[in-house]
Each structure stands twice: as C-alpha cells, then as structure tokens.
Design a protein around this nucleic acid. Structure first.
Lengths: 237, 237
DNA sequence: CTCATCACCCTTGTATACAAGGGAGAGGGA
DNA sequence: TCCCTCTCCCTTGTATACAAGGGTGATGAG
C-alpha cells in the first residue's frame, strides 16, 4: 500500500506501517527464509538493512526483533518528525494543485476509514498522509527519511498504547491541507508541529515499555490459577 | 575524527568526510576484506549498510563504488539539509552555553585550518560543524541523518568542483553561532538556509558529472597525438 | 594497421557448512 | 515442593565454496 513489498525489507516496513507487526516481534532468519523461498543469506541482508534504518535490532544469538522504542527513542523520533515535517512546509512556497487534490482525496479516504473503524487500515492511512505529503514536495530523500521515521513512531504508538484519536488526527490533516491550499505554508508548518505534538502527548510514555502490551489486553481477565486461597481478595484488591 | 572508525562503515564515512575517498572510487570486497583481515561476508554487510545510507552503490558483477551524485541528487541532498538544519534551529529555543562554547572552539579550529591551507582537514572541519551543531541539540537521530546527508554533499562538492570559498563558509558558521548565542534562533535558521544555499550555488552543477574530474585537471594540457596534419590549426582553432 | 571475436580472469551473487552461544527444560538434590 | 544445575537444541555469526556474469586482453581476419 505504502511502498513496494517486492522485497523482504519492503514487506516488513509495510507490515509495520499497517500495524500487523508489533514491537518486539521476533523475525527468525530461518522462518523468513522459508517464507520467501530464499536462503538465510538474503534474509540477513534484509535484516541488516532494516537495522541501519532503525526498524529492527538483533540480540546476539537470540534473533532479530522489531524494535521496541524506549520513551527516549519515542521523544527523539517525534522531535525528528516535527523538525523535518515543519521544516519542509516552512521551506516550501507552494504545492501544485494536483498534489493538493490527491492529498485531499487521501484525507477523505482517511475519514471513511475512521468511520468504518478498521484499526489497521486507519493507522496505515493516517501514517501515509505524512509520507504522501512529503512526497508531494518532490524530494525523494526526505520522503524516504520520513517513511522510516513514521515507521518508528507507528511502533511507538503501538507500544505505548496511544489513545490517539483518529478522528482528531484526520481533522488535523484536513486543516493542514486547508492552510497549504490557502498558500499559508508558515501556518501549515505551525499546525503540523502542533499536530505531531498532540499525537505524542496522546501517548502514555509514563508506563513502562512492555513488550507484552499486546498480550496484556488479551490476557487481562485471566486470574492465575495458583493454589493461593481465594479469600485473599484477588488481583483487584 | 568525526566518528568512530572502528568499523568498516565508519572508516568509509570518515574517509569521505575527510575527502580521502572520492566519488566513483571502487571498493572491492576482496581488497577491503584483506585490508581489515576479515572475510568478504563482513565487508559485504558493511557495503550493504552503506548502500542503504546512500553512500555507496553496487554495479552488478562489477563492484561497489562510492556514489557519484547526479545534479538532481545534489539538489535533493542540499534541499534536505536546508530543511532539516533550518528546521532544527527554528524548532529550538536555545542552546546550552557550554555547547555554544564548544562550537565556538570548533569554528576557531576551522579558521586556523582555513589559514593553514590543508584542504583535507579544512573540508572535514567545515562539514563537522554542521554535525556537531546538530548533536548539540541532543537528538542523535537527527544527528545521524545529517551525518549521512553531509557525507553526500561532501561527495557532491568533490564531484562538481565547487569553488567553495572556505573562508566564507567559516564566516557563515561564526555568524550563525553569533545569532544562536544572541538567542535569535529564527534568524540563525534563516542564516543557515542562506549558508547552505550559497554552498550549493558555488557548485558547477551545469557541468556533466564526470568521474574523471580529478584526472581532467591533471590531463588538461594534453593534446591528442593524432596523425592529423599539424597545419589544421590544432584543437583550439 | 585496424577491427571484430573469443576466451580467460576477476568480480560479485548466493547458498551452505560449521562454529559459537544463549535458553528452555529435564533431572536431581535439598 | 522448590530450586539449582546441567545438557541439549535452536538460534545467529562467520567463513568458504561454487555459480554467474562482465571486462580486458589476446588473437586472428580483413
């Protein structure tokens, strides 16, 4: 959807942006090699490329894992996005009308996804807006950088249970686009800074980065079957 | 000097920033493996990492080469640097006094290098200023991104025979630092934009990106020894 | 003398074999 | 019953062997 999935790298990135790969997920070389019908060599190459892009990391002799950004990593990634995306808007003079039209169409797609409710496509589209916006300015280098940063912040959002309100983000995007169309790029830059800031503020960075966050939601109702007396009040006491 | 050279990647980047590795230089796997006393495997891994960072590229079955940025690549790289470096300054509120002091010291080093004349150290220091400035803002992610971008623009400068006036750049740096110290980060951002713009304008992007640019200067006086009659006026006619 | 053709060599591309190390689980002792 | 320890297995780390392809130089014809 976002990018070419014709490579292992691309497939991993796409899966992350779509929210199908969570932080901490193990990416075994043998498993991927089997999945793609190639030898471990190719898989390792892809993993190392992704490692330099900050998407996966290796734990010696244990395996490759989708990165689990720390609170500091999260701060740094969001700051980087603010600097670059606001800088991009502030540096630009205008945007071609057809590019604005395409982005408008994208925001409309976002709106529908927000209403329909699928969390996967929604996350994907909301992240894609930023990538497409960057691409519209015609600098593939910055676009590529922002794609990686967006992948990072997507992982952050997954890890820190953001109560990101998708509708609010969608409205932000629409407002930014309005300002661009009106030719007020400086205001758009300011709005973008605020938008990314709000997304970051929506995170629960105080909580410990828990790799089992995903399982936790599923397993929450579970009460350990210990032989402790039931009269101790249970986990809620 | 700029970064850890304790890896093949780092050594290559450092060599580029120092101007010791020129665009188009071939980096044979066997040669590097021999040089570092490791097998080709490790070298290939390093090359692939550098490839994802946009520093080298591979020509199938021919070898790895330091990238030779096209005119468009150059434009894009400088634009990316303008966006990020100006955005970084514009987003920041202030810089700790000790960081300013360190940068001041660096600019002084630059000045001495410009006077002494060694082109290698000079290039290295002038590029390092931007990296150190980015590092001073405490975002290692942006610092890393800018290191790679600076490596690219350094390659561009080597390829397109920039008549970069080192003294002018040094003065720009000092002025930017003055504005930062005065607390006028917005003006510093604007100055940075101008500075990078001037560096880019100093390039001769009109000329074809010639991998033999270095040889050209040396071989220029050479007149082809054809068997054509000398009375035809020669190549200057 | 010039040019086309061909073979060899040197390069990267890919897979595989083996080494090294961490983790889980079995087993035994307290 | 609990815990400690040890072993085996599964994982990645690294090197090497072989495959594939391009470039250069020799060689021969015109």
């Amino acid at each position: 959807m976002t990018l070419a999935s014709d490579s292992i790298d691309g497939a991993v990135i796409a899966a992350i942006l779509a929210g199908r790969l969570r932080p901490g997920t193990r990416l075994g070389e043998a498993a991927l090699a089997d999945l793609y019908g190639v030898s471990r060599t190719r898989v390792r190459e892809a993993m190392m490329r992704l490692e330099t892009r900050g998407i996966v990391q290796v734990s010696p002799r244990r395996g490759w894992f989708v990165v689990e950004p720390s609170a500091e990593d999260a701060r740094v990634a969001f700051e980087a996005r603010r600097v670059i995306e606001a800088g991009l808007l502030a540096s630009a003079r205008t945007l071609p009308p057809d590019a604005v039209a395409r982005l408008r169409h994208h925001v409309e797609e976002e709106r529908r996804a927000v209403l329909d409710g699928g969390v996967g496509p929604r996350t994907c589209l909301l992240g894609d807006f930023h990538i497409h916006l960057a691409a519209a300015f015609g600098n593939p280098l910055l676009t590529e950088i922002l794609r990686d940063l967006t992948a990072r912040t997507t992982l952050v959002s997954m890890l820190y249970q953001s109560d990101l309100h998708a509708a609010e983000s969608n409205a932000d995007h629409a407002r930014i686009l309005d300002l661009i169309e009106a030719g007020d790029l400086a205001a758009a830059a300011s709005e973008m800074t605020g938008h990314i800031h709000r997304v970051e503020q929506g995170l629960d960075l105080g909580t410990a980065p828990d790799p089992h966050a995903g399982l936790r939601g599923i397993l929450a109702p579970f009460t350990p079957l210990t032989n402790a007396p039931l009269t101790d009040g249970g986990p809620d006491a």
